Amino acid sequence: MCIRIEIEELEKNILSQYAALSKNTKGRLIKEESCHVRTEYQRDRDRIIHSKSFRRLKHKTQVFIAPEGDHYRTRLTHTLEVAQISRTLARALRLNEDLVEAIALGHDLGHTPFGHTGEKILNQLHPNGFHHNNQSLKVVDRLEHTESRKGLNLTYEVRDGILKHTGKEAPETLEGYIVRIADRIAYINHDIDDAIRANIIKMEELPKDCLNILGKYHGERINSMIVDVIKNSIGKDRIGMSEEIDYYTEKLRDFMFERVYLNKAAKGEEDKAKYIIEQLYQYYIKNFKKLPLEHIKLYKKNELKEDIICDYIAGMTDRYAINLFKELFVPKSWRKY
């Protein structure tokens, strides 16, 4: 008996009736032979972790653009925190940990340089708009490639969870719902932590009723939210918070939008970031053939030029975009040797 089949049997015997069993996956876009050791969702997780797109997340903005301090979150550390919270919830609810981990690790692969600032400007520039969840799916389906394969060819359930981790469409699995709620728990709390570190807000300015219910400190608030989700979801075919905890969580989120996400001091470099992306976009519209050949080869001849340019810029890290802008638009010093 192969190890994968043993694990599939364990899933069947141990997991909740509402769990997405790996042996029942709806499959991949291109059929592949199963692995003898890993389940299908384990393979998806591994493909994401080993991808270039995943590695680039370490140099992409979470909230504060190009932060100098070592302790500020990046898009990569955010992703890891979402994965950790997702696994905790999945284990407690006896849902599929491998599936939630794969979705969580892949959910933000389509994020632009400079975080949501980059997303907003690309959404304005591109004729068809731009949304990072759609881009994350495009990354795993087409843009991430190896010598032997275009795209990561992930399972249906992982692709569904990545696409629907935000937006109006609901995920088809409870594991997908877990990542949606874990994403919210993670970013609200770690953004508070980073904002306090950056002196944008002070601990005593946080809504006191939220702290009384959820906890004063970072770990206490995360624990309160996680425990509440477990209590309100265990043995049920849905994932959610109680009305009380959801109310105070949303109130904290509203506070963060008012005081941090839309704060001029916190977002002081936003206009510069927008300008960089806009200039790069317009440059490649006029100089399309200057795009790397490796990137252009990913597309068919009749595909929109704007799509190809947008994909290229969205894949950049903050520092790559800044350095490319300097190379293209900032005069170099002339030296005589």
Rank of each mutant, 00 (worst) to 15 (best):
110 G>Q: 02
6 E>T: 10
98 D>I: 00
195 A>Q: 02
29 L>G: 02
102 A>F: 09
40 E>A: 13
229 V>T: 14
250 E>W: 10
54 F>R: 14
246 D>K: 14
76 L>R: 12
4 R>M: 01
24 N>A: 07
173 T>Y: 11
21 L>A: 05
274 K>F: 12
3 I>D: 08
65 I>D: 02
2 C>P: 12
201 I>E: 10
134 N>L: 13
269 E>R: 14
216 K>L: 13
33 E>V: 04
288 F>P: 01
10 L>T: 05
184 R>N: 07
286 K>I: 01
84 Q>L: 05
88 T>Q: 13
136 S>Q: 08
115 G>C: 06
27 G>L: 12
45 R>W: 04
290 K>E: 15
7 I>M: 08
233 S>N: 10
303 E>D: 06
79 T>H: 03
326 K>T: 09
242 S>W: 11
108 D>Y: 15
210 C>L: 06
96 N>C: 13
76 L>E: 09
124 Q>F: 08
262 L>P: 00
9 E>W: 12
164 K>W: 06
27 G>N: 07
254 D>V: 09
323 N>Q: 14
154 L>T: 11
54 F>I: 04
120 K>C: 00
234 I>Y: 15
88 T>D: 07
263 N>Y: 10
25 T>V: 01
91 R>N: 14
305 K>M: 12
55 R>K: 14
287 N>L: 04
142 R>W: 09
36 H>G: 02
81 E>K: 08
110 G>N: 02
308 I>Q: 12
33 E>D: 05
70 D>W: 09
309 I>G: 06
174 L>G: 05
327 E>L: 09
111 H>C: 01
112 T>H: 09
19 A>R: 10
297 K>C: 00
265 A>F: 13
139 V>P: 01
95 L>W: 03
57 L>W: 07
41 Y>R: 06
7 I>E: 08
208 K>G: 01
254 D>H: 10
234 I>L: 14
32 E>F: 06
239 I>L: 11
257 F>G: 07
118 G>D: 01
96 N>M: 14
